[in-house]
Design a binder for these strands. Structure first.
Lengths: 339, 339
DNA sequence: ATGAAAGCGCTAACAT
DNA sequence: ATGTTAGCGCTTTCAT
């Protein structure tokens, strides 16, 4: 018998009412104690705390959020893929800022799928998050306008929104790419292979534009034969490098649109012991292992997330000034100067 | 006047009641339509949908969760640091499984701080998550027992819980380390430097034990002078390697407790053009850039998160069988065979 | 300083 | 097939 009753029976979770009964006070007094309202007798405070601890009471945030109307102390971050270090750096920085505001972070991956992105945004809005941070997968975000009007702050990172005016934090993609390519040109390179992910991605278009601008300004011109887009991973980057090196008039340098492309390119060069130079967007921890001349177009990769989160929490706190556009500058990091 | 009233006024969010009025039906009919209850006249279904779309109604999940009692369709993952690729791989895999269950993921970093870990767990429980996945930072988790009895499933990953019996998914740290070191011994290495993060971390103790077992079994014995623990990042790993190589009777090989240590060690060897061999836990994307003989003690780094999440959702679905202990095997990956 | 009553937005139980 | 009533666990009036 005893064993039966003490066995795994889903013990009902104690509510404030249970605590009130146990402590011999009213429900409201419990609420006051839980919320550290100073207008409660010390005696009551103590007995409530005792009851809380005995019963294992834990306030139901769901109920609190519903009644008090507004803040769920939760924000949502929509990115492409948490496994990619670029995005996990953003998530990590956002989470840190959120913690300072006693807010939890829901991370959701869109997997570059606009439909999935929309779905995930709906789910986040249904949960009444206090705000949204979005690395847009590129569709129209007009459907968020109504939510924003209802007071849900939305901040875009890394890529601007489409069909919507909202706070946005971007990198200086054009400037970074331009100065990286200018550096290659200054070192005498004239044939620079361009390795980019899909040009449907805003950052890739911008980086290509910056690179092109440098080439044009220097009078070298832009050779379409040296461009490979839709390079999604290191393996494809390696193949692209291999193909270009095996072709006519191979490049003497490569511009890599992101760090995974840089790793793939460096691997192929290492395999061939080829001396081509590399200039690449995004730093990565193992960059020092590259034996070729390597110039990184770098930036503080936590700053993107941090700045965006800061803007978001300013909005959550009530700031209704017009949308902010922040552009983070990049710098050249000469990882390996001699090849 | 018109401009004033249409200006940014926090439009109240429409409720089911508003929809009901707009559609000329009862609240409950709206609820039925929203929940796709088939017992509603087509005519009503249509007018409700119309009202929903005109008003921009979005069901309040907070209210639904409160009333229907149980599932918030949210789970929590507590890790050390989202910026570390080891953890972001876990988070990514968990998120994928969660999405299959139409569940969102709250990620929270403990930053290796037991107090923070506890805080974060409290906050997650207050939000009534459907379940918890924890990479424990190493304190006593007995306080979770009451929650588990109340039906909140908890699964531990990468490290076992303390003071609690619960589902746990681990890597074969001992076996992996042992076979890695055995391989080095078979290649003739007798002085193997050991680079590990803090030995307060379960995985580090296990990996050390495995390495030690291989050394003892082979009759080489364990030399404390070759052990460096508390190696937290690549920089410290580089320094440790430098110090050992500059000392008496330097190692001819290094055992690296994780991938960040491996990167630091490889960097130092590359700087010196030193031929020491490396054997390292965890694969990393840039491992191919290492020029030394490199053997990786690898595993499917998404599997840890995936398996743990699968167990969790089985529990959420009601499985009350006794706690499961899953151990994932490792394999040796010979990244660079000739040095 | 404390408590009683109402109600957040929704769903469950029970009519009709 | 539809509506009415009650109530999830809490906070917010408003009394006392």
């Amino acid at each position: 018998m005893g064993r039966l009753t003490t066995a795994v029976e889903a013990t009902r979770r104690p509510t404030m009412n249970d605590v009130a009964k146990a402590a011999g006070v009213s429900l409201k007094t419990v609420s006051r104690v839980i919320n550290a309202d100073p207008t409660v007798q010390r005696e009551y405070v103590e007995s409530v705390h005792a009851a809380v601890s005995i019963l294992g009471f834990r306030r139901n945030e769901i109920a609190r959020t519903l009644r008090s109307g507004q803040t769920s102390s939760t924000i949502g971050l929509v990115i492409e893929d948490l496994a990619n270090p670029f995005y996990s750096a953003i998530a990590s920085a956002v989470e840190r800022v959120a913690a300072e505001h006693r807010t939890l972070l829901i991370t959701a991956s869109s997997e570059e799928n606009p439909d999935r992105e929309r779905e995930v945004l709906q789910e986040l809005l249904q949960r009444r998050v206090d705000g949204l941070l979005i690395v847009p997968a590129g569709v129209d975000h007009g459907f968020l306008r109504a939510e924003m009007a209802r007071g849900v702050p939305v901040v875009f990172l890394d890529r601007p929104p489409t069909g919507l005016d909202a706070d946005t934090v971007l990198l200086d993609n054009v400037g970074g790419a331009r100065s990286g390519v200018e550096y290659m040109l200054a070192r005498g390179h004239r044939r620079i292979g361009m390795l980019l992910d899909s040009l449907t991605i805003f950052t890739m278009r911008e980086r290509l534009a910056g690179a092109r601008a440098a080439l044009m300004q220097c009078g070298v011109g832009f050779d379409d034969a040296l461009l490979r887009d839709d390079v999604h991973d290191p393996g494809q980057a390696s193949s692209a490098v291999a193909a270009m090196l095996d072709g006519h008039a191979p490049p003497t340098a490569f511009f890599c649109g992101n760090n995974r492309i840089a790793i793939g390119a460096a691997l192929e060069l290492a395999r061939r012991d080829h001396p081509a130079a590399l200039v690449a967007f995004d730093d990565f921890e193992a960059s020092g292992l590259v034996h070729n001349l390597l110039t990184i177009i770098g930036y503080d990769n936590q700053e993107l997330g941090r700045r965006a989160a800061e803007v978001l929490f300013r909005r959550v706190a009530g700031d209704r000034s017009s949308p902010e556009r922040i552009m983070l500058s990049t710098d050249l990091r000469h990882v390996r100067v001699t090849s």
